Amino acid sequence: MSDLTMLKNVGKAALADFAILGITSTAQLASCEPDDLYLKLCHLTQQRHDPCVHDVFAATIHQAKTGEALNWWAFTPARKERMKAGTFCTLPTP
């Protein structure tokens, strides 16, 4: 079993997303950025994913880097502010 399953916000859906992205360990995840993972996932699956997926990526990366396990929704306000400001990762229009 992957050590990713030990992270607070990782369930079946997040594990499936990490598999698509080729992320197989917490150490590998710690070197990632949530924007990059979110955009790559959307590109690889050819669909827009709920922005909350970004929040899960942010939370799991934070825990992988710091050891601090926060709920994914703790990262939602910052993402929403970025969305309002137009600085959240943008996807090309299909």
Score class of each variant (00 low, 15 high):
Lys40Gln: 11
Thr24Ser: 03
Ser31Trp: 01
Val10Asp: 05
Leu70His: 15
Gln63Ala: 15
Ala64Thr: 02
Thr26Gly: 13
Ala69Val: 09
Ala19Glu: 11
Met1Gly: 04
His43Ile: 01
Thr24Leu: 01
Phe75Val: 06
Thr87Val: 10
Lys84Pro: 01
Ile20Ala: 04
Ile61Asp: 01
Glu33Gln: 12
Leu41Asn: 03
Gln46Leu: 14
Leu91Ile: 13
Gln47Pro: 00
Thr93Cys: 04
Ala30Ser: 15
Thr45Gln: 09
Gln28Trp: 02
Gln28Phe: 07
Ile61Ala: 04
Ile20Thr: 10
Leu91Thr: 02
Phe88Glu: 13
Asp3Phe: 13
Pro77Ile: 07
Thr26Ile: 15
Thr90Arg: 13
Leu15Val: 05
Thr90Val: 12
Ser2His: 05
Thr76Ile: 15
Gly22Val: 06
Gln46Trp: 05
Pro77Met: 06
Ala27Cys: 03
Gln63Arg: 14
Leu44Asn: 06
Ser31Val: 10
Trp73Ser: 09
Ile61Glu: 03
Pro94Asp: 05
Asn71Val: 15
Trp73Gln: 11
Thr87Phe: 05
Asp36Arg: 11
Leu7Asn: 10
Asn71Ile: 15
Ala64Lys: 02
Phe57Lys: 01
Thr90Lys: 14
Pro34Asn: 07
Val56Pro: 01
Leu44Ala: 10
Glu33His: 05
Ala78Arg: 08
Ala14Pro: 00
Ala85Asn: 11
Ala13Pro: 00
Thr60Ile: 07
Val10Arg: 10
Thr90Trp: 14
Ala13Lys: 07
Leu15Ser: 08
Lys80Cys: 10
Thr93Met: 04
Asp50Tyr: 08
Arg79Lys: 11
Gly11Arg: 09
Asp50Ser: 10
Leu15Gln: 08
Thr76Ala: 14
Lys12Phe: 08
Leu44Lys: 13
Phe75Glu: 07
Thr60Gly: 05
Asp55Arg: 13
Pro77Thr: 04
Thr90Ala: 15
Ala16Thr: 04
Val53Asn: 06
Thr24Asn: 06
Glu33Gly: 06
Pro34His: 08
Lys40His: 03
Ala58Lys: 08
Cys42Trp: 06
His62Tyr: 15
Thr24Ala: 04
His54Ile: 03
Ser2Met: 04
His49Trp: 11
Pro77Leu: 02
Ala16Gln: 05
Val53Trp: 00
Asp36Gly: 03
Val56Ala: 09
Pro77Phe: 13
Asp50Ala: 10
Leu15Pro: 00
Phe18Asp: 00
Arg48His: 08
Phe57Gly: 02
Ala69Thr: 13
Ala27Pro: 09
Glu33Met: 03
Ser31Ile: 07
Gly67Cys: 13
Leu21Val: 05
Met1Val: 09
Leu70Gln: 11
Ala74Asn: 14
Leu91His: 12
Thr26Phe: 07
Leu91Gly: 00
Gln28Met: 12
Phe18Gln: 02
Gly67Glu: 09
Met83Arg: 09
His62Ser: 14
Arg48Cys: 02
Pro94Arg: 06
Leu21Gly: 05
Pro51Ala: 00
His62Ala: 11
Thr5Gln: 12
Ile61Val: 07
Thr66Gly: 10
Ala64Ile: 02
Leu15Tyr: 03
Leu4Asp: 05
Phe57Gln: 00
Phe75Asp: 00
Val56Met: 10
Thr5Val: 12
Thr66His: 15
His54Phe: 15
Pro77Ser: 06
Gly22Lys: 03
Thr90Met: 12
Leu70Ala: 11
Leu37Asp: 00
Ala30Asn: 01
Leu91Phe: 09
Asp17Ala: 10
Pro94Gln: 03
Asn9Thr: 13
Ala64Cys: 12
Ala16Val: 02
